[in-house]
């Protein structure tokens, strides 16, 4: 997939993170949201870049949520 698509996925994850900062457990909230609404390929695409420069652009809570989901996925 293109850099543009990955950039968008990272943006989406960050946007979710910025909107749930006041939830009691933001990381769980982000993880649930992505689990429920993203297609398998979208998830796989973003898991694949977690350790690269694109992943570095993730908000800490979004990063933690994706790590949690990635761990479950494999």
């Amino acid at each position: 997939m293109s850099a543009h698509t990955v950039e968008k996925l990272v943006y989406m994850a960050n946007q979710i993170a910025r909107n749930v900062t006041h939830e009691p457990d933001p990381v769980a909230m982000i993880a649930d949201h992505i689990h429920a609404f993203w297609s398998a390929r979208m998830k796989a695409d973003v898991f694949a870049v977690l350790d690269g420069p694109a992943g570095a652009a993730l908000e800490p809570t979004a990063r933690a949520a994706l790590d949690r989901l990635a761990a479950h996925a494999c």
């Binding site: 997939m1 293109s2 543009h4 698509t5 968008k8 297609s39 390929r41 979208m42």
Partner: peptide, 8 residues
């Protein structure tokens, strides 16, 4: 996302 996937 379909459209993104299409361009990819």
């Amino acid at each position: 996302n379909m459209l993104d996937a299409a361009t990819d």
